[in-house]
Design a binder for these strands. Structure first.
Lengths: 187, 187
DNA sequence: GTCTATAAAGAGATAGAC
DNA sequence: GTCTATCTCTTTATAGAC
């Protein structure tokens, strides 16, 4: 049915299957959260079967860990104005296309402690980095508010699909950009 | 021919038990989300048993619906400046003490469609009301951002427990209040 | 390499004893 | 009114057939 060349094709096939499983896992974890996403559903969506998923990834937890790993953000450095620009640019990206892996972690974090830790780690690391470079006594607080605002926008847009946030990223940034700059500079 | 066997006591007892179950349900749903909270755990925490919980509330879904009903916010009306003040005051409350019922709905909404609808309904209703009274072409967008900011702050503080947001409500409002006013007036 | 059958555990829900 | 025992279903995870 398949090819007649065994070895190379097998490795290739396996990688393909693994990739399909990971993609399906990201989508489903992101859409339904950790508990409501079943190995069965992932296998079906990937055109495979539950046994194979378990064999490749070991457990549902491990599959989730791989699917929901948050890609590290670029380092944020410079003057308050530059920082504001970098944060605004990063937000634009997050609003434009759906960051599938991050969404999986975000949705799951509210019911899955490990996912919560993943998100918290990613956010605090960036936030501390930013706070250290901002002026003012309340730099930590202000960078925290920037983080909360960013989280609120991403969640409201992609997860809650809140009314009024379905505008284009540019329109949104036109409103939010100045606020981020204000918070960064402390004006 | 009043009571040798007091009916009133039974009714009273039942109400007490129901109240204890509801309190336990709010706390546990708020802490672990819908799927990870078991009827068994709620019964144990309420000093009761699973059978009773089912008997009183019918199903886990119905118990959740009662536990996670979001109390309606006060109507928000007036000039943009007044609206900003009302929204800021409401936010102060939400930051000060943990709104147990709302937290249950908030945490659950990410994995439980019914809860998502509850939160979305509560938010859009208030948001539309606000948008209708704000000046400017982008009033809907700006009131959406206010909603996202509020959601982000509450989630970051109570659910994520993000670094830098553990300040006193007053300190937080000192930073966020002006932003809300800006968004409301469109300045 | 891939898929089927099943074991093991845990959940919500129900019936009935006290 | 309250609690115990159990039924049934669904899940992850495993063992082994193709």
């Amino acid at each position: 049915m398949r090819r007649l060349k065994p070895m190379a094709t097998r490795v290739e096939q396996r990688q393909r299957t693994e990739a399909r499983i990971l993609t399906a896992a990201r989508r489903l974890f992101g859409e339904h959260g950790f508990d409501r996403t079943t190995i069965r559903a992932i296998a079906t969506e990937a055109g495979s079967d539950p046994g194979l998923v378990m064999r490749y990834f070991g457990s549902k937890e491990k599959l989730f860990a791989q699917a929901a790993a948050i890609p590290a953000d670029r380092p944020i450095e410079g003057s308050p104005e530059q920082i504001a620009r970098l944060l605004t640019a990063a937000l634009t990206d997050k609003l434009a296309d759906e960051p599938t892996a991050a969404l999986a972690a975000l949705r799951a974090m509210f019911s899955h402690p490990e996912a919560a830790e993943e998100v918290r780690a990613a956010m605090t690391s960036q936030q501390r980095q930013v706070a250290a470079q901002l002026p003012g006594d309340d730099a930590v607080l202000r960078s925290g508010v920037i983080g909360a605002l960013t989280l609120g926008l991403v969640v409201s847009r992609h997860l809650v699909r809140l009314d009024g946030l379905d505008a284009s990223p540019e329109e949104l940034i036109a409103v939010v950009g100045p606020i981020i700059e204000e918070l960064a500079t402390g004006a």
